[in-house]
């Protein structure tokens, strides 16, 4: 089993302990990542998608803690890793790029310095070789005049260029997994298209797996092999892009899709999801989405919905889908 997947997240719970109480940001997330695949995690703000990513890297804020669950990298549980082992894991096995390329680069060091830091830390290359590698990486991510760029500081580069530098830094030690946390949200659409194209190209060339965390349904539609939709710290639905967009089995996914303007639609009104996102301090007993769901039933209020399996590994955690499937199964049994 562990051979098949490079990363397995099992029943992950992450909480933040604040003055007003325990904020349960992630509540039992499960997913598997196969080598060389692109997994998309979508959700609104506060859905726990970024915290899931940070939990894997163990870069949570001081108040945050992984409460329970496992994160298996090649079969090893990295939540049990000590500090030193985690240092070895980050950068070499798994890298992360952040949303804002302005604040995630250190303004007082040159690009070259920051790129070489990772290479020197994780490989036994000497300074000269590390510099060569840095230039090579910049070339790979399409930064022009890399010889000149490594001597420049972050403020001298545009947003798109900085994000390329971030990607170069993340990939310098050829990790097996790249986590991209809203990598293009701060960029313009034309630059976003460049960066997404670059990521797909690099993925083909270097063969790493990517976890793409985003709120933009448009970004994941074209890129991801597999998508998970999160709400209130739980996975609502998992499936391929086609499963999620055309055969969605969760009311929240359906609601999200109804609330965005589509390219082929006319002037018809959008159908928003009523209400406001849930308060993570005070999670409901049942389904996290039930307060905003039009189809909510009694059972939704009191019990957490089970994973309802559909063809090809597609599943949704929704009582309504469960009921439908039960009825269909019952109908089929009666016919026989």
């Amino acid at each position: 089993m562990s051979e098949e997947y490079i990363l397995q997240v099992k029943d992950l719970h992450t909480s933040f302990y604040t003055d007003s109480g325990e904020v349960k940001a992630v509540n039992g997330v499960n997913f598997n990542l196969a080598p060389g695949k692109i997994l998309g995690i979508v959700g609104e703000s506060g859905s726990g998608k970024s915290v899931t990513a940070y939990s894997i890297m163990q870069i949570l804020a001081d108040t945050g803690k992984i409460v329970s669950g496992q994160v298996l990298y090649k079969g090893q549980d990295i939540t049990k890793f000590d500090k030193k082992q985690m240092h070895g894991f980050r950068g070499k096995c798994c890298s992360i790029i952040f949303q804002d390329p302005m604040t995630s680069l250190n303004p007082v060091y040159t690009i070259g310095n920051q790129l070489m830091e990772a290479i020197l830390l994780h490989t036994d290359k000497d300074k000269k070789q590390a510099k060569e590698r840095a230039v090579e990486m910049l070339e790979l991510v399409g930064v022009n005049e890399p010889q000149k760029r490594i001597k420049q500081y972050p403020y001298e580069l545009s947003g798109g260029m900085r994000q390329r530098v971030m990607i170069a830094m993340a990939l310098a030690c050829e990790p097996d997994i790249l986590i991209a946390d809203e990598p293009t949200t701060a960029l313009d659409v034309t630059i976003q298209a460049q960066i997404l194209e670059l990521m797909q190209e690099l993925q083909k060339k270097m063969g790493m797996a990517i976890i793409m965390v985003t709120h933009d349904l448009g970004v994941i539609a074209s890129m991801c092999d597999e998508i998970i939709v999160m709400y209130g710290g739980r996975v609502c639905e998992r499936g391929t892009a086609e499963d999620i967009f055309y055969r969605s089995g969760h009311e929240y996914t359906k609601g999200l899709l109804r609330s965005i303007p589509r390219p082929d639609s006319g002037k018809e009104r959008l159908v928003p999801i009523a209400g406001t996102p849930i308060n993570l301090l005070n999670l409901p007993k049942g389904c996290a989405f039930c307060a905003r769901c039009d189809e909510a039933m009694k059972i939704c209020l009191t019990e957490v919905p089970p994973q309802v399996q559909m063809p090809d590994g597609h599943y949704a955690s929704c009582w309504l889908t469960y009921k439908k499937q039960m009825e269909e199964a019952g109908g089929a049994a009666n016919e026989q």
């Binding site: 997404l196 074209s222 390219p263």
Partner: peptide, 15 residues
Amino acid sequence: SLLSAVPIPDPIIAK
């Protein structure tokens, strides 16, 4: 080019 860069929330049209 601006319009072609817009990510489309529909996998079939996007591909």
